[in-house]
Amino acid sequence: MSDVIIIESGRQERNYWGDLWRYRELFYVLAWRDLAVRYKQTIIGAAWALIRPLLTMMVFTVIFSRIAKLPSDGVTPYPLLVFVGTLAWALFSTGLMDASNSLIGNSNLISKVYFPRLIVPISAVVVAFADFLISFGILIGMMVWYRFIPSWQVLFFPFFVLVGIAATIGPSLYITALNVKYRDFRIIVPFVVQLGLYISPVGFSSSVVPEKWRLLYSLNPIVGVIDGFRWSLLGGHSKLYIPGLTASLVMTALLLWFGIRRFRSTEKRFADLI
């Protein structure tokens, strides 16, 4: 007898994380499915993956730099500043939106097969991460175009990517768990994301925020991620604001913890509620 499984009301499974590991391929497979399906029956197919972020970047550059006339920091070309911001923001917003609808979108799986439910929203974040990698490729192209060479700080970039992923997963888990019960969140999330775009420093540098508000502003975990991205990729011209970064990191960790807790405690009832 290999493993013993005990099913009881309210029992936390001891082997939950083990199961998660056993089903690790499902993260990849579900993400692959979403990606493979996305560009089926389109004319230009996967080229959309490149065109979408490019278009977003162009729109943002025009709106924030030309129309709103917001300053860049120092010598960094404005499109690069915007694009790095978009990179972080797109990871967060597509991750959050797809993940919060993921359980409902896969309700046929939830009500018919067992697997750790955590896989579903997280694989939606994996999809967002794949988009992120494509956009990152475009960024490298842009850096070559502007002859921009990042300095030693680029070594910290992977760390900020991880923070960005954590900052996405935390709220996503919380909202997707709520969304199963109360579909109101399906309507609320797009508004929150839209609003978040304007209050996060995507199209402008966070240095435009007055000094006394900066710490409060940094409670938005995405502020820390975007600042970190800019600092690590675009170099010392954008200074890293340490208290703000710490605030963002703490918020990220808290949200992640709350998200996982909330998700785990409601997970077993998903099949009944969905």
Binding site: M1, S2, D3, V4, I5, I6, I7, E8, S9, G10, I110, S111, K112, V113, Y114, K268, R269, A271, D272
Partner: peptide
């Protein structure tokens, strides 16, 4: 099959 949780009682399964 662990899709939904019982309200009370207990199930013991030996194996996958």
């Amino acid at each position: 099959s662990r899709i939904t949780e019982p309200t009370s009682g207990r199930v013991t399964l030996h194996g996958r």
